[in-house]
Design a protein around this nucleic acid. Structure first.
Length: 118
RNA sequence: GCGGAUGGCUGGAUGGCCGCGGUCCCGGUGUAAUGCCGGGGACGAGGAAAGUCCGGACUCCCUGAGGCAACGGUGCCGGGUAACGCCCGGGCGGGGCAACCCGACGGAAAGCGCCACAGAGAACAGACCGCCCUUCGAGGUUCGCGCUGCGGACCUGCGAGGGGUAAGGGUGAAACGGUGGGGUAAGAGCCCACCGCAGAGGCGGCAACGUCUCUGGCAUGGCAAGCCCCACCGGGAGCAAUGCCGAAUAGGACCUCCGCGGGGCAUGUCCCCGGGGCCGCUUCAGCCCCAGGCAGGUCGGGUAGGCAGCUGGAGCCCGCCGGCAACGGCGGGCCGAGAGGAAUGGUCAUCCAGGGAAGAACGGCCGCAGGGCCGGACUUCCCGGACAGAAUCCGGCUUACAGGCCGUCCGCGCAA
């Protein structure tokens, strides 16, 4: 599992599928085969200043990282990019198990939406 | 005990499970380069890491040196410091009973400008009311005389004119010193005492300044946070600075190689023929262009990316010495984050502070009493961690901050 570092990757994920949850917003896309290593799951995190001051943003990002580490190695699909976006207030405050379930449901929706039309 | 002032420290603890960052060691593997994977060791946010407001270090750019001008900043004195707009000590002014706190605190006899409103008068001051003197008139009292009147003296809640006056009233942020006495028609530094002020001198202090004596009757209104003057300081941009390495692709330069256009049919290792320019004409030769590449190589710039800068420093701790202190000196010991979409955590449990609710032994007060009110060891349950996250590094300032701990001092009350 790698971390996204390029702005372009974030923008590409934003244009593709998305799924809102009470705790955060998930964006995801399947990469084209000629991009990065197709066996890899990549993930990025975004917490804008709307989330709060530096302490609040960092805490939100750390909690998003924690659930990503628990969930994505098993349920993330190879060749996909995932971006988790923090929400003001709730991402840092919501119970951890609820945040965990949010990601499970959001992943299911994002994957289903991608397969559906095909 | 109550109330207050001030200095310093601290900024939850322990454990389980799962993780992150650089670094060192071991093993494996790989790139143009940095690396990557597995295992292990120690280490890994703050007092403000914040605001980015001052001062520096360090880089690059500009500049021959100095001076002057402009612009910006600082502004009582002395000391500390690499430096500062910071810190310490002192002076002066203001507030407070006091501990203590606050202060853009140089210059207004260099010049310009401004001083609204109110008020009579506001910067070469000023006469509104009031007070005083005086002339005339009016009225009155009284005296005298030559007595339908005339004259003198005095008086006035009266009128008009002339003059004096800055004590009093009133206006204002401010009215050409203040208080008291003498003096005067009334007044006035007109005179005197004290205070203030100015000048000179003595003494104390490095100085800011303080103090004493003498002299002067008082000049020099305020605003410099309007311009200004004086003294001192200051070149600009910033670690996304700056230096180095450097793919792929495109483009550039050079070298080598191949090749260029038209036509024929027998389609080949074939044959025939070039045009334009240098050159006005002809021939030959040369060079250039029409006219290139799908090739190979070399080189330089440079993008992605990587490396350095990057953490050993005006460093931290302890002791001794000097200094009222800020701080300095000496000796010994220590190494304490280094990321780059950015680590230093996620989660659970228990505990310690703290808050709330319920119960409650017991104690106090009120009441004849039933009872009511207040405090409350202890028990149970619930809530529950302030402000805030390094980004080149230091010294400050400012701002934010739940709670806790330690010290010193002041006022009041009580006791001895």
């Amino acid at each position: 599992m790698a971390t996204l570092t390029k702005r372009a990757d974030f923008l590409a994920a934003a244009r593709a599928g998305r799924a809102g949850t009470p705790g955060f917003l998930l964006q995801a896309r399947k990469r084209r085969p000629d991009e990065a290593d197709p066996t890899m799951v990549r993930v990025g995190f975004t917490c804008s200043k709307k989330v709060g001051n530096a302490v609040a943003r960092n805490r939100a990002k750390r909690r998003l990282r924690a659930i990503a580490r628990e969930v994505l190695p098993a349920l993330g699909q190879p060749g996909w990019d995932y971006v988790l976006i923090g929400k003001s207030g709730v991402t840092a405050e919501r119970p951890f198990v609820a945040l965990h379930d949010d990601l499970l449901q959001a992943l299911a929706r994002v994957h289903a939406a991608r397969r559906g039309p095909q």
